[in-house]
Amino acid sequence: MTTTISNSILSASIKHSGAELFSIKNNQNNEYIWEGNPDFWGKHSPVLFPIVGTLKNNSYKINDKEYHLPRHGFARDLEFELIDKSENRVVFSLQSSTETLTKYPFEFELQLIYTLNESSLTLEYKVINKGDTTMPFSIGAHPAIALPGNFDDYALEFEKEEALKYYILENDLISSQTKILETTHNIVPLNYELFKNDALIFKTLESKSLTILKDSKPYVKVAYNDFPSLGIWTKENAPFICIEPWLGYSDTDENSGDLYKKEGILTLEENKNFSAKFSITIL
C-alpha cells in the first residue's frame, strides 16, 4: 500500500512497508527520489532504527544477554500503520511486537511524520519508550536523491566552511582512519572515486544543511539541524546520492558490545518521547 500527500508545488508518496518515502515530484512531474532499481540499490529512503550502521559481529548485549540485529536495524523492513492523514501531512506508526522483542528487548512506538510546506518535505521521527526501563537506540535517515544526467555535473555545497573530516569504513565498521574532504568555497564536485571505500561518515559537522548543485545551480537542499552526524553514499555508476542525517553510526572494532555504552547511542527514559526532524527542499 502507498499514501500520497500534496500541495500546490509538490507531491510526496510513501510506502506503508517501512513507511518509506519513494517519490517527491514537483508540479512539472519531475522526480527527485531515486527509483529503487535493484541493479544498483533497491531502496529509496529507508528509516534506520533501532541502530544506524553495522554492529560488531551483528550483535550486542543487554544485561549480558546477546541479541542480533542486521545492518541499520529492522524498522525499514516492517509494515507501518497509517494513523493520521490530511492533504499535506501523514503519520505512520510501528509498535514493538513479539517479533521485534526477540531482536530488541524494548517496548516502543516509532512514528514517521511527513509534512509538505511549500517546496519542502519535512520528515520527523518520533520515538516513544513504552516500557519500564531506559531504552538505548539510534535513528537515522537514508534518502536517495535522484541525479539525472551526468553524475559529474553535480556537486555538494556545505553550509559552512570547515574541515570536513570523515571516517573510513572497514568491513562495515568505522576504522580509526580519517581523511579530509577537500572543498573549494565549501563545494565538493561529485565523482564516484569519492565513494570507492563505501560511505563517507562524518561524526560531527558544523554545517547543518547541504545543497546539491546541478551545473553549479541549486537543485536540492537537505537540512538536518537535529542530527549531529551525516553519511554520504552512492554506488559506482548509480544516478543518485544519499544524504543521510544520523543520530548514531556503526561500531568500531573496539566496541564492547554493551548497547548502553555504544558510541553515539541515545537513551530514552521510560514513558518519555524523543523527536528529530530534517527537511528536503526542492530548489
Results as ranks from 00 to 15, higher is better:
152 D>V: 01
162 E>L: 13
174 I>S: 01
158 F>N: 02
183 T>N: 05
134 T>K: 15
214 K>P: 00
186 N>M: 04
159 E>W: 11
157 E>V: 05
137 F>A: 05
179 K>Y: 13
131 G>E: 02
196 K>I: 12
181 L>T: 10
195 F>K: 01
166 Y>D: 03
165 K>H: 11
126 K>T: 09
169 L>W: 02
210 L>F: 06
138 S>T: 08
153 D>W: 02
163 A>S: 15
204 T>I: 04
203 K>D: 09
186 N>K: 15
209 S>H: 12
187 I>Q: 11
136 P>N: 10
204 T>C: 05
190 L>N: 00
158 F>Y: 10
204 T>H: 14
137 F>Q: 01
168 I>G: 03
162 E>C: 13
199 A>T: 10
183 T>M: 09
165 K>L: 07
155 A>H: 03
163 A>V: 11
130 K>Q: 13
160 K>L: 14
206 E>S: 14
180 I>A: 04
195 F>V: 03
172 D>G: 00
180 I>W: 10
161 E>D: 15
167 Y>E: 06
202 F>T: 00
127 V>F: 08
152 D>I: 04
193 E>Y: 05
214 K>G: 08
157 E>W: 06
126 K>V: 12
206 E>V: 10
177 Q>G: 00
203 K>P: 06
156 L>M: 10
209 S>E: 12
124 E>L: 08
154 Y>F: 14
186 N>V: 00
180 I>N: 13
161 E>L: 09
138 S>V: 00
200 L>D: 01
195 F>D: 01
131 G>K: 03
153 D>T: 06
157 E>P: 01
198 D>V: 08
127 V>C: 09
125 Y>E: 09
177 Q>Y: 08
194 L>D: 02
138 S>H: 00
211 T>I: 13
202 F>Y: 11
134 T>P: 03
202 F>D: 02
143 P>Y: 09
146 A>Q: 12
170 E>P: 01
145 I>P: 00
144 A>S: 13
124 E>M: 12
174 I>V: 15
150 N>Y: 04
145 I>T: 06
185 H>P: 00
134 T>M: 09
183 T>A: 09
149 G>I: 08
212 I>D: 01
210 L>S: 02
188 V>E: 02
191 N>K: 09
162 E>G: 13
214 K>Q: 14
140 G>L: 09
193 E>N: 14
186 N>R: 15
159 E>P: 09
134 T>A: 12
197 N>I: 00
139 I>T: 08
162 E>S: 11
137 F>H: 08
147 L>A: 05
139 I>N: 04
170 E>V: 11
208 K>P: 05
200 L>T: 05
202 F>H: 06
191 N>P: 07
210 L>A: 04
200 L>W: 01
151 F>T: 03
176 S>W: 03
206 E>A: 13
172 D>K: 14
165 K>F: 04
192 Y>L: 02
170 E>R: 13
150 N>V: 12
142 H>E: 07
145 I>V: 14
195 F>P: 02
213 L>F: 12
153 D>L: 06
152 D>G: 11
155 A>N: 08
177 Q>F: 11
180 I>T: 15
142 H>C: 09
176 S>G: 05
